[in-house]
Design a protein around this nucleic acid. Structure first.
Lengths: 199, 199, 199, 199
DNA sequence: CAGTAATCGAGACGGTACGTCTCGTCTTGGA
DNA sequence: TCCAAGACGAGACGTACCGTCTCGATTACTG
């Protein structure tokens, strides 16, 4: 989380949740650019100072509100399925990502988050550490399992593999440069396995 | 361009150029978020109304200012080198992209442009049509040449090939998730050719 | 008139009349404060430059437009009635003034004119010379006739007499401090004659 | 006062005084027409919203600023002198008015106030109730005392008496139609007493 | 269980920027 | 050659938010 800590024990959990929920709602309703701190405070039934006491700026509030949407509060990340069939497992996971990007309740806040990250290197670091790294690690665990099973090149740079898999999907979504379909997800899996699959 | 047309023939070319140049300068100096229409007008020695007469909002001005940076006014796009060695040619082009992303005078405005595009579907369409499509077509011309030369799978989806090549680079740059080096560019070329190279 | 004189011979009488008429119409329709040069030009079917060529600013246009409303173009001023009965003649004239102030088509432009005059000493002088002085002189002619007839104190300061007669009427109208009725006009005539009537 | 009331208890007295003082200063320095809300806010060291929060428009600010100049905050109005000599007392008071009109620090703001009042019936009503009525009542008290003393016609319409006394002075000042001197004040007193003095 | 200290909702504050409107000047193209 | 049409630089308008600040009024630890 991005919150500062004046005396965190006294903090009102009620207000915290109301602020983050209102933020997500407003992002979906108005779009990221038109969300204001004033509007968040009003919707959450909270004084503006209560927001500024715990977050330094709008970006941080948006960041946390989206983080809460995606993350398990314990910080734990679910492992990827491992049926032994790498291609099938990746197709499953990538198709789930496609579905997520199609849901406006996820789409709008995540787009907002990406806007923040793209323009604020500090948030980018935070995002990488708190959210991306654990998820990527889970994915890489599955890839390592595939390497041991001889389904993936043992020398493959796993970060690169993930990028070849996910970056095209991400780019299409963010810039709306093409349709996001299940067959597109499948094609990416096929390409990645061709590039990095055990010979 | 994004300009509206009250009476485009009377338009002052002098003001137009001053506005777009000032916009680019301010993006580099202050960062996209802190650029204001007031500041652009003041720097350009122009009334605010002259900006609002021709562009609907800040996003459109930024869009055009960056477009002018990248685009040949005639709309022509340089063809990619074609030495006969696909891998070498792609490495050259991708390394050039890496270099561009490292130059602050390009980096900042292009980041601003991407922020606009990600949050405005209309600008995204415009961007695709005016800037991305011609460039992509030039790249695909080179790939088709490689297909004819038997260096690339004749059935390959060329859009997918371009995405596998460029999207990882773009993602690393936009989200700052990793270093952009020449060897990274080379690795992407290698992966793509492995995935789509003629068998 | 307030007009400048670049080459008054070339001046388009048609435009001049359209401008002044449009000005009066707009004052009545919108109130003085909301009348703009742009609106006058548009209504008159005239370029803005044609206005600025002949008048220095909005005040001057308003001034001339109201002047034309009140003044005989020849500069001649009708003499006051002289029936030999000063009180009756004055009552007639003052009642006519009351009626004029009650007519919105006169009221609004004259109020605009007074606003201009109150805030611009130069226009005040011009107003005094071009419009007020001749009218006052006609009124004083009638008073002199009354002095000769022994109906008015021979030593009376005629400017003061006119002020005692008209200023209360003017003040009530301008500041809306009281109703403007015929009996009020009559009361003013009675008071003035008591103050200045031949003893 | 003309102020609106969002939460008048929290209102900053410091800002209120700074705004009204700055307004008066700017009127004297620049003249009414050239005073802008921006300039008032800047001079007062105040945000524009603080002005718009409490006053609906420039006229209301000017109105209040001049009101504060003239009015005792308690609303009390000094009684006129009553030496028993009506003519002498009136001359004293009218000469004081002449002096006030000659002082630029009073002249400019009061002229601005009159411009507002002449063009806004609502402000005119407010002016009459808050400022003019109490002062007029004080003057009429003195006139009633004179009636009891047999120095003024017992039937005289006191409003009319005041108008005959003051309106000529006001008109000369507002339209600059003549010099404002002590002898002019004296002449008005003489005329009024001749018209309404006890026979 | 009272005292007290921090957080809370509320909202005014000094500011910055917005997008619109009007001013008075300058430019262009058709009559 | 004139002039309507209208773009231009300038700058004020009134609004929306920013992030800070003061208010009482809870609220929850501490003595």
């Amino acid at each position: 989380m991005v919150t500062k800590k004046p005396d965190a024990t006294r903090r009102s959990e009620r207000s915290r949740r109301a602020i983050l929920a209102s933020t997500r709602e407003l992002i979906v309703e108005l779009g990221y650019a038109k969300v204001s701190i004033d509007a968040i405070a009003a919707r959450a039934g909270v004084g503006k100072q209560t927001i500024y006491r715990w977050w330094p700026n709008k970006g941080a509030v948006v960041f946390d509100s989206v983080l809460e949407l995606s993350a398990d509060p314990s910080g734990a990340v679910a492992a990827l399925p491992d049926t032994g069939d790498l291609a099938a497992d990746l197709r499953l996971v990538m198709r789930a990502t496609v579905a997520e990007f199609a849901d406006p309740a996820f789409e709008a806040p995540i787009r907002a988050l990406n806007t923040e990250i793209a323009n604020d290197p500090d948030l980018a670091t935070l995002y990488r550490e708190r959210l991306a790294a654990p998820v990527d690690e889970a994915k890489k665990d599955r890839l390592r399992s595939a390497q041991r099973a001889g389904q993936l090149d043992a020398d493959a740079d796993l970060d690169l593999v993930l990028e070849v898999l996910y970056a095209p999907l991400y780019q299409r979504w963010l810039l709306r440069t093409g349709p996001l379909t299940e067959s597109y997800a499948d094609a990416l899996v096929a390409a990645a396995l061709k590039a990095f699959g055990a010979s």
